[in-house]
Amino acid sequence: MNVTTQYILHTRLMLDVIEQQTAAIQRAAQWFSQTILAGRMVHLFGSGHSRIMVEEMWPRYGSFPGFNPIVELSLSFHNLVVGANGQRQAMFLENVPGLAGRILRNFDLSAQDSAFVISSSGSNVVPIEMAEIFQQQGIRVVALITKQHADKSISKRADGKKLSDFADLVLDTGAPTGDAMVTVPGLDTPVAPGSTVGGAVVVNCLKAEVARLLTEAGHPPTVLSASNVVGPERAVSLFEQAYDEHAHRLAKLYQRVGLPSSVREQANDLP
Rank of each mutant, 00 (worst) to 15 (best):
T146K: 02
E216P: 01
V263S: 13
H246S: 05
S225M: 08
L13P: 01
T146S: 04
C205L: 13
H43P: 01
A226Y: 08
P69Y: 02
H78L: 07
L163H: 13
L259H: 07
A90S: 15
F64E: 02
S63Q: 07
D179V: 03
L104D: 11
G98E: 13
F45R: 06
A200E: 09
N85A: 05
Q6L: 10
G122F: 09
L75F: 05
E129C: 07
H246Y: 10
T35D: 00
W31N: 00
S114L: 11
A84F: 15
L15C: 14
T4W: 09
I145E: 05
S50L: 00
G39I: 01
A175S: 15
D269W: 08
A150K: 09
T215Y: 03
D108L: 06
G198Q: 04
A217K: 12
L9Q: 13
E19I: 02
S225H: 05
I18W: 13
G48A: 09
T5P: 03
I139T: 12
G39S: 02
A111K: 14
I154F: 04
P127E: 11
V142W: 00
M130G: 05
V197E: 04
L13Q: 15
V42G: 02
L9C: 05
I25G: 00
T146C: 05
D108G: 10
D16Y: 01
P193A: 12
F92Q: 14
P97C: 11
R234F: 03
E240R: 13
V191H: 03
A251W: 14
V236T: 13
F107G: 04
V263Q: 10
L15H: 10
H78G: 10
K162V: 03
H219S: 13
H78P: 00
R102G: 12
V54S: 06
L187S: 06
Q20M: 10
L37T: 00
V54G: 03
Q34F: 00
L13D: 14
G101N: 15
P97Q: 06
V3S: 08
D269R: 14
G39K: 00
A217L: 12
V257F: 05
L213Y: 01
Q135K: 15
K161G: 12
K207M: 15
S47G: 14
F45C: 08
W31E: 01
A84K: 15
V17N: 09
S153M: 11
I18S: 12
G231D: 07
H78C: 10
